[in-house]
Amino acid sequence: MTRHVIVALVVALFGLVFVRLVGGYAELSALRPLAAQYVTQAPLELGTPNIVTGILITFRGFDTLGEVAVLFMVAASIGLLLKKDEPNAASEAAAAGIGEHTADDAPLREPSEIVRTGTDVLLPLIFVFGAYVIVNGHLSAGGGFQGGAIVASGAMLMLLARPGSRLSVALLSVIESFAGVLYVSLGLVGLVFAAGFLDPRFLPKGEFGAFVSAGAIPLISALLGIKVGAELSVIIDRFRG
């Protein structure tokens, strides 16, 4: 009971902090100078209508590279955490737990017909929609992270519908590594032929709002989408054990 009182006190104090924050917040009526700079520069210099993508891929491109590095490290560390124990250790554990057949050993229930049929219909649509969101990122709402998450949700549905099937983690790792290497190479090309690392202006800007435009932003966005989709799929597969 004492614990609940202390917890209530802590939550109330945090609530007080938040109330003061909300009370002192005045809604912006104009852009801050840095934001105004981005909003005017992104369409003019980069030729991308979607300013958020312009910031993510170019102005803060190095941060985005760091983010995908974090995702990669999570995929690797989850693989290490959930690694199957060594064969001899596993047999020892089995010997220690003889006759102790718990729910872990129960046969997996088959997925229902709705899930299996729905997967056949929806899976191509989900992958196509994911690809659309990835390659449309420089023109409208979308981008590599969002599309990659949609593709990974398709992989999740596939694993739910066919629990026996294995994702080819090795193939996904190769795809993911190649996307990462190409991403950094594009950044280096920008360093040589344009103003700096991850500068997409070494390709022509093209017509504003056209599908092939905005320099190398669609290319970087596509690589980002492939990398994120592969990484999230690997993480989902690792959790199946």
């Binding site: 912006l28 801050r32 840095l34 934001a35 909003v39 369409p43 300013i51 958020v52 910031i55």
Partner: peptide, 12 residues
Amino acid sequence: ATERAIDPIPSA
């Protein structure tokens, strides 16, 4: 855009 767009930095 400078008058009517929201601040894109928090969104990014």
